[in-house]
Amino acid sequence: MSPVFLYTLVTLGGIGVILGASLAFASKQFAVEVDPRVEQILEILPGANCGGCGYAGCSAYADAIVREGVNTTLCAPGGPDVVHKIAELLGLEKTVSTRKVAYLHCAGAHDKAKDKYIYDGIKDCRKAVAFAGGPKACEYGCIGYGSCVAVCKFDALHMGEDGLPVVDRIKCTGCGACVRECPKNLFTLEPDSTIIYLACSSHDKGKAVKDVCSVGCIGCGICVKVTEGDVIEMKDNLPSVKYEESPNLILAQYKCPTKSYKDLAAKRPHMNIDTKCKGHGECVKVCPVKDCITGEEGKPHLINGKLCIGCGLCLGVCPEKAIHVVGAMGYVGMDMSS
């Protein structure tokens, strides 16, 4: 055997054996114990790494749950399913988190809100804001360059033709990326049962709002007066609505002089009076809509289904319990069959 062949064998073989042995030794000696639950939680989490939970990614959140006992309900994209599975794994009580989606609190489309200058820079909201607060005359309004659309990882935001982003309520996971991105803080996450919401964020006084936008809230406070319970509160010229208490905002939307409340329902149930009606007329007194309920006193009354806004005020006052709800809810941009 030639010495070159022998020495090659010895050299490479020796290197291989020594390095292999030392790596094997090191992997035993320097093994870092990882809590197996971290891996298991990581498998449950959706793996979108959206950062909605406030951690750097899914693995950071899984680590925080195990090590620091952080709340297991922070994963919005995962929804209640993920919460249940993690709770089961850790032997915790099941806590249900309501599904939340993003709502844009501005309705200042191109034709409704005025611009104060023509912006010709980078089409990015944060850049535009740096220049005198953006081109919108209303300092609270949506700039409409779609920075929120760009950060949405779930394809749930699209730019509408009117220059305002539209939330796809089915795709939205409530991760909150748009909430953090919007330089005007126009997005909030609210329970997805919210159908009517205030689409304005302006704290300006009535005149100032009227000058720049036709659908801006003028802070008149009528919505506070007409809505039952303490669900709306005027804060600095703007109604603050507690959406988590699922308020009935139909009347507020109807009475709002500027139509600042946005209704996502294309069609909602209306009231109907059956033959039990003896014509007490109690319903006529409470109905907020003119000529909606008609009929002579003492004779059966009639509700005009086209005028009825479905507020339900008349339901409780009928002494004969003759008023019923008819029809179903329909949503804008939502196929209810799915």
Binding site: S22, L23, A26, S27, Q29, F30, A31, V32
Partner: peptide, 10 residues
Amino acid sequence: QFVEMVIQKT
């Protein structure tokens, strides 16, 4: 590889 393991531990 070796250095990585050592750093991870220490």
